[in-house]
Design a binder for these strands. Sequence first.
DNA 1: AAAAATATTGAACGATGTTCATTTTTTGTG
DNA 2: CACAAAAAATGAACATCGTTCAATATTTTT
Lengths: 225, 225
Amino acid sequence: MKDKSNSPAAPAASAASPVLKVSKASQRKAQLHEDLIACATRRIAAHGAHGLRARDLASDAGCSVGAIYNVFEDLEALILHVSLQTLGAIDEVMAANARERAACSQEEILTGLAERYCDFVVQNTHSWRSLFEHALPEGVELPDWIIEKQISLLGHVRRPLAQLMPTASDEKINSTARLLFSAVHGVVNLAVDQRTVGLALDEVKRELRFLVQMFVAGVEKGRAE
Amino acid sequence: MKDKSNSPAAPAASAASPVLKVSKASQRKAQLHEDLIACATRRIAAHGAHGLRARDLASDAGCSVGAIYNVFEDLEALILHVSLQTLGAIDEVMAANARERAACSQEEILTGLAERYCDFVVQNTHSWRSLFEHALPEGVELPDWIIEKQISLLGHVRRPLAQLMPTASDEKINSTARLLFSAVHGVVNLAVDQRTVGLALDEVKRELRFLVQMFVAGVEKGRAE
DNA sequence: AAAAATATTGAACGATGTTCATTTTTTGTG
DNA sequence: CACAAAAAATGAACATCGTTCAATATTTTT
């Protein structure tokens, strides 16, 4: 037993560095690591994190159940690696919004972010839900490489907000970015869960735009006074 | 086996109607029904819905594990009855806000609601989380008596909103109430879960006020134009 | 080629929700 | 009250999980 893969996709000692030993064993291990994440990603996308069963996974990846635990600490750790990929996909979607709306108003950039987040959640509900459904056990922290990805997401909200609130401190911009992300997240969350207190799926995007527009208008109104 | 208690707290054929038979058996059943909800409420409050185990519950209530399934369809159904109580508690908190701030501005009523919801969630995290953590199985609907309670909660948001948006249709008021509730819910949710993208617990209420104030200001600005 | 180190395996373990044949209690009736 | 039928309560047994670990197979080193 070596590292149980606490860090994600270590580049597997790329072929360009022949000094580092890429033994047959560690190659197989790296391959299994990759395969398991791929299989888990598919299963989570199809049935949610709850539907990820060790025996099914072993069957999919063509290994024994025990092998999973040689590569990952437990299933939860494997799910975290899938989460990193999901976060990456969300980051891409948000980055695309920033590119396509680079010339637009800050309000339009923010409404675009909300709509894109909503679209992603509707199209990738299970994967997205697995990002949030597990309340981590008392005292257990998320690994750094997950936290960094999440901070990166917030950057997409922080940048247009900084333009909208030119006199605000970095701390205020930061907390407002978290506020706005959380609010949009909540609206999408209760909607895709089809909760009674949430919105119907066919009104979510319209109402999300309304939320962001009213919030931005309120901020601008305060600035004008 | 009779009804498995699909409806909540049927008044157990109150003593005032001697025609309806209150047999010794049905009395015991009603008592167990009550006891199980009480024990489940305590356990969920202490350890969350995940920590509700059939064997522990039977031990607490002084019955066999099988007895639980004579009274409730499954543990999920029992959790729903606990949810009704939790929703009732939230309703009370929101109603208290309406009473205490009856003479305040609509903005203050709405910020008060957000703050009270936040306080409740912080103080009753486990019970509150069990309201939302289970995504119901495909095609399974919540029972009417839960949906009614949730609609009742929305009323507390709808009423001040109706004052703020006098020209809006009932549908618009309704969807805006869901929007605002969902947004506040999301902010509180990510905060109590201590998520990276959420707010820290010591800034939540301040930022919630900011969110509601900016939203209300935006709505009023739009009305003025 | 043999030995040491390492990795893989899958049966077994401990929980868990749920069931159901058996036992106990309650109810209806002569 | 006695006694049979009906109803309810019981808890051992079952199916299904995640996880472990002694036994086996493989790889690496000597």
